[in-house]
Design a protein around this nucleic acid. Structure first.
Lengths: 213, 213
DNA sequence: CCCAAAACCGAACACTGTTAGGTTGTAAGG
DNA sequence: CCTTACAACCTAACAGTGTTCGGTTTTGGG
């Protein structure tokens, strides 16, 4: 009770503890009381450092977005810019899958997301894409990354899937998916990204053509 | 109090009311008490018809998945099978965007999702794709659809984005995105799907080749 | 006619995010 | 050195959550 001799809380310690709880107990497993307990404190004390649980999660999400790599757009090669962005984006989300549903919502309120959106749009327009295409390509790529991070397709098949196998003959091998879940998810993402970018490269030639022309 | 002369509740009425509340008040806006009130009943009465809130949401999600169209895989044309599947999938999710985060998680526990997964995998393998590719293509397509349904990219930019515009010069037109959000989201999805399928078609020729060969 | 089962209800439990107001320690100003 | 203001924690409380227990009333079958 009363003020401690040296401060116990600060924003970054709160962020770290919150992320740790989300990682281990899931998004629903994070409560202000549990977070406070982890920090050796009572729940109301958190509100001296954080406005609300929602704002706290936004701040944590913003921290994660700082790790996304947009340096590829500085090289003038929009294809490798997109690829670097998409891969580092997926990697950032994959490290904290429980937070993905939260991070999927719009870039506003997260300065790091705006920084990324700005770089992507600028890089694509700079490469000759019309602004409208730049918007759509940014959106499409985000779709892929968010979907891949949300889905974890192969993990969706539970152990007792055996029950359904007589009714769904094509899924006989589904249970084995779980053993190689990470590998299959990674390969699927690469396939999706490669195919998407290959299709885009084709369209680039019809939409933009040779810029020196 | 006591048993009513004619039953008030049944599963489908509960499902419908739950979906209505989720649509208007969001996923967090659905509570068992509010749902009960909407049905003219008290919360505990619901537990005679549904095991838990979680199970209820799974059932509602399953209802929605019934609308997904997999008939395209019966024609032997895997490309149009994928396209039809993806479009109807996105349409189903787009009608109830608040439920998307819930529906994104694995197909297990939802028979309708398993039916779809079975048809997709069967259709692709039947067209000559190796099973491993069929798995990855199914996953990739789901990534696109889930991502597109989650993201609503253009809606993510809030009104007060003006504040950031001096720091992010490439986003000058972002506020106007919100006015055409639906159109941009739809066009972005089509661009992503077209590009992805075009890339896949190319790969098909190298992986499968001419099947009559 | 009776009795079990069905269908609803009130009260309660442990939990949630958040606010109001209280208590103690520290640092600055006179 | 003393006082005052503020920072940093606290307890208590509120309205809300999902869910369970043990009623109470009505129905339908034997």
């Amino acid at each position: 009770m009363g003020r401690p001799r040296t401060p116990v809380l600060n924003r970054s310690r709160i962020h770290q503890a919150a992320l740790r709880i989300v990682d281990t107990d899931g998004l629903d497993g994070l409560s202000m009381r549990k977070l406070a307990a982890e920090l050796g404190v009572r729940a109301p004390s958190l509100y001296g450092h954080v406005a609300s649980k929602d704002e706290l999660l936004h701040a944590v999400a913003n921290d994660l977005m700082e790790a996304v790599d947009i340096s590829g757009f500085g090289t003038g090669d929009w294809l490798s810019g997109l690829r670097t962005w998409a891969r580092s984006y997926r990697a950032a989300l994959g490290t904290h899958p429980n937070l993905v549903p939260f991070m999927a919502y719009g870039p506003a309120r997260r300065s790091a997301s705006l920084r990324v959106a700005d770089a992507v749009h600028g890089g694509l327009v700079g490469a000759g894409w019309p602004p409208r295409y730049a918007t759509m390509i940014g959106a499409s790529t985000k779709y892929l990354v968010i979907g891949a991070a949300m889905g974890s397709f192969s993990r969706g098949f539970e152990d007792d899937l055996q029950i359904y196998l007589d009714r769904y003959p094509n899924l006989v091998d589904a249970p084995s998916l779980r053993e190689h879940a990470d590998e299959i998810d990674a390969d699927s993402f690469e396939l999706a990204l490669d195919s998407f970018l290959a299709g885009l490269a084709t369209r680039y030639r019809t939409v933009v053509g040779d810029r020196s022309a």
